[in-house]
């Protein structure tokens, strides 16, 4: 036994032993009664065996596990991040397309509504803007816009024409009144409109509107207006142009009367 150990030791120091032989040496120096002359070799084999039993402390393995788990997110997040980025990009594109599609559909539908059912939207807008009590809070351009919206109406109701007549007679802004006048001419078929235009002639003092009204009445051949025209022509307060236009209007109206006869 001792002989073989000595041989093994010799081989060992030559670096020629196999792992099995080295294990045998370790076992020998750990377990057997080591002869005195071999004792000096015991220390290193003892050390090797003992060193092999060394392990990192439990607190270390715990701390490492704790560090490995959260960092798991880090790299994983980094790994997925470009996927996420692409996905986010695609999602944004989809949202954009979907939004565009929905908006387009919505506008299509509102277009359908104008063509199909009655003119709810402009009518509502006109009423909103031209309502007498709101006159103080709306601007002239807003009211003109509202008046112009009435052209979009295919058929008007008395409420809307009454609103336009009121605007024609009482709006503080001349331009709004002019717009209302033109809008009303557009609706000459409505029963109240013609009377309202004739009546308005006696109210209006602005030459622009007076002339526009005369022309409008002549254009729609409203013979009942001739009396009003004569009053205008006689009234010295009116401007020269207006009186001339009124006289001319009388002539035109009677001409058409004659022609129609």
């Amino acid at each position: 036994m001792k002989m073989s150990i000595e041989k093994l030791l010799e081989k060992y120091y030559e670096g020629e032993t196999s792992t099995e032989e080295e294990k045998e040496l370790k076992r020998f120096f750990r377990e057997e009664n080591v002869p005195k002359d071999l004792e000096s070799h015991a220390a290193q084999f003892g050390y090797f065996a003992a060193a092999r039993e060394e392990y990192p402390s439990l607190t270390f393995t715990g701390a490492l596990a704790a560090r490995l788990d959260p960092p798991q997110q880090g790299p994983v997040r980094r790994f997925t991040s470009w996927i996420v980025q692409i996905a986010a990009g695609l999602a944004l594109l989809l949202v954009g397309f979907a939004g565009g599609y929905v908006l387009q559909k919505g506008s299509d539908r509102s277009g359908d509504r104008v063509a199909g059912s009655a003119d709810e939207v402009p009518r509502h807008a006109i009423k909103n803007a031209l309502a007498f009590e709101k006159m103080a809070s709306t601007s002239a351009s807003e009211r003109i816009q509202a008046v112009n919206q009435s052209y979009e109406l295919t058929n008007v109701d008395t409420e809307t024409t009454q609103l336009l007549i009121n605007t024609l007679n009482f709006d503080p802004n001349i331009n709004v009144r002019l717009a209302a006048c033109q809008a009303l001419v557009h609706f000459e078929n409505e029963p109240q409109v013609n009377e309202a235009l004739i009546h308005s002639l006696s109210i209006q003092t602005d030459p622009n509107i007076q002339i526009l009204l005369i022309e409008a009445l002549v254009a729609i051949r409203e013979k009942r207006a001739s009396e009003q025209f004569q009053q205008l022509a006689r009234n010295g307060k009116n401007m020269e142009v207006v009186r001339l236009r009124a006289e001319q209007g009388i002539g035109e109206l009677s001409n058409t009367h004659v022609q129609s006869l």
Partner: peptide, 26 residues
């Protein structure tokens, strides 16, 4: 750990070193 301890001859430093290695591997 044993390798690091053999080189660094200090338990704490060895643990620190292999933690570094393991995290790098991870």
């Amino acid at each position: 750990f044993r390798l690091a301890q053999m080189f660094l001859r200090n338990r704490e430093e060895a643990e620190d070193a292999i933690q570094d290695v393991l995290l790098r591997l991870w």
